[in-house]
Computed example of a mutant assay.
Amino acid sequence: MTMPSIRRMTQISVGLLLVIVIRSLGEVLRLHYAVGDRLTDVQVGPFVIGALVAAVAALAVVTLHFLHLDKTGLVVTISTVVALLIYKVIALG
């Protein structure tokens, strides 16, 4: 099996970022189901911020992909995933 091209990996990375957005917003819905009406902005804030960061990164990677700057798009994706993991550890403990 051959290694996918940089262009293809950039396309896959956009999908990864969109999965992160969906997962983060899905967590808000899960919390709403688990906690009910007692859910506060403090509880859902980190997930919404994470989804927003991932969505902006996905937009940036798509733009870079259209500009044929695929390596830069991969760097943005990797940086975003690492930043979100660090944010998760800091914000959610």
Score class of each variant (00 low, 15 high):
1 M>H: 10
1 M>L: 11
1 M>G: 09
2 T>K: 12
2 T>E: 14
3 M>G: 06
4 P>D: 07
5 S>L: 01
7 R>K: 14
7 R>I: 03
9 M>N: 09
10 T>K: 06
11 Q>C: 08
12 I>V: 10
12 I>A: 05
12 I>L: 13
13 S>A: 14
16 L>K: 07
17 L>V: 06
18 L>P: 02
19 V>A: 14
20 I>F: 07
20 I>Y: 09
22 I>V: 14
23 R>Q: 15
24 S>Y: 06
25 L>Y: 06
27 E>Q: 14
27 E>W: 08
28 V>Q: 07
29 L>G: 00
29 L>K: 11
30 R>D: 11
31 L>K: 13
32 H>N: 12
33 Y>Q: 15
33 Y>H: 15
33 Y>E: 14
35 V>P: 06
35 V>R: 01
37 D>T: 14
38 R>C: 00
38 R>W: 14
40 T>W: 03
40 T>M: 03
41 D>Y: 03
42 V>E: 15
43 Q>Y: 00
43 Q>I: 04
43 Q>H: 04
44 V>E: 05
45 G>P: 02
45 G>K: 10
46 P>S: 11
46 P>G: 08
47 F>A: 09
47 F>D: 06
49 I>C: 09
50 G>F: 08
51 A>P: 05
51 A>D: 02
52 L>Y: 02
52 L>P: 00
52 L>F: 12
52 L>D: 01
53 V>C: 08
53 V>T: 10
56 V>I: 15
56 V>S: 13
60 A>V: 14
60 A>Q: 11
62 V>A: 04
65 H>N: 13
66 F>P: 00
67 L>V: 04
71 K>N: 06
72 T>S: 12
73 G>Q: 04
73 G>N: 03
74 L>R: 08
75 V>S: 03
76 V>S: 02
77 T>G: 00
78 I>F: 11
81 V>F: 07
82 V>K: 03
82 V>L: 13
83 A>L: 13
83 A>T: 11
83 A>Q: 07
83 A>I: 04
84 L>P: 05
86 I>S: 12
88 K>F: 10
88 K>M: 09
89 V>D: 07
89 V>A: 04
92 L>D: 06
